[in-house]
Write a protein that binds this DNA or RNA. Sequence first.
DNA 1: AACGTGAGTTCGGATTTTGAACGGAGATCG
DNA 2: CGATCTCCGTTCAAAATCCGAACTCACGTT
Lengths: 166, 166
Amino acid sequence: MIVRQQEAQPMKWDELAQEPCSVARSLAVIGDRWTLMILRDAFLGVRRFETFQARLGISRSIVTERLNLLVAEGVLQRRPYQDRPVRHEYRLTEKGLDLHPVIMAIVDWGDRHYAGEAGPPILRRHKGCGCDFHAVQVCSECGEPVTARDVEARPGPGAAGLRSPT
Amino acid sequence: MIVRQQEAQPMKWDELAQEPCSVARSLAVIGDRWTLMILRDAFLGVRRFETFQARLGISRSIVTERLNLLVAEGVLQRRPYQDRPVRHEYRLTEKGLDLHPVIMAIVDWGDRHYAGEAGPPILRRHKGCGCDFHAVQVCSECGEPVTARDVEARPGPGAAGLRSPT
DNA sequence: AACGTGAGTTCGGATTTTGAACGGAGATCG
DNA sequence: CGATCTCCGTTCAAAATCCGAACTCACGTT
């Protein structure tokens, strides 16, 4: 793959990825200020460099860097959508699509706490049932909704060197 | 008059909060590199300045800044847990607890794509049913699991000035 | 008195981000 | 044919942020 990255970048993030914590490891990839915004747009169907850049209004170099990182991590796939002038588009891979719950959870929190009087800026319809909906998180085992208070965490098998929270 | 052609304004972080987008508005609060790590710890029961700082290993000033922001946004509540040397603790508010799905979605993605052979670093038990579980996102209306492909987005009531994705 | 602790604050240097300009390959216009 | 336009980047200096380390303060402990 060899995505020319500035490897001389001892970014704190490298260490994040080593942490025995799924949050840390995920954030090493998507925890950037703009990366989640890019993903938001990707889930809305944006595919082109120019569109990402124009919609976010950020520096082109940042867009380049973030897209490259996401491609390197297998979240986006870069592929030509035309030759002649060869142009590429950035599409979500399966791994990228798996991030949908993250975006939806963020959307839901924003809708709940920051939507103005008018209501949420975007409505989402579930094709399955045809209704406008919001995301609800449930337990994979019993199907009941899960809140923070319903959860008990403890070290798991991959917990080498995990620091106790207390 | 609908003239909303992006004047390519820089969109600083503070301006993010003004965007007609729940993702942007949420990220203006929690979209920072370390803020989500702080929240992760908060959900694991961390309450004290020193503990956050030690676990994250980041600059004290950053911890101060992030905690203050989260308090200002009503995600954390700062309150004394002793006088004499007056000491404070930071606790999740209801609004903060509402972020649980965000953390869980991130955990889930990390568990799925970055857990090593050993398995996830942390296991979570659902007190309701007693099982180890992972978070699943379902439609609030029909209760069926939702994936990215099942969703159709369109402008909602609070969509003033929303840029079309295309 | 000497030392330890929790919770910050300050400060100078290291990173990041940004705006603006530049490049290049093909397409389109006149 | 030359000029201009589009898309997708890259480069570079300046500005904004971030960071580590040291410092402060107000207690407690020995």
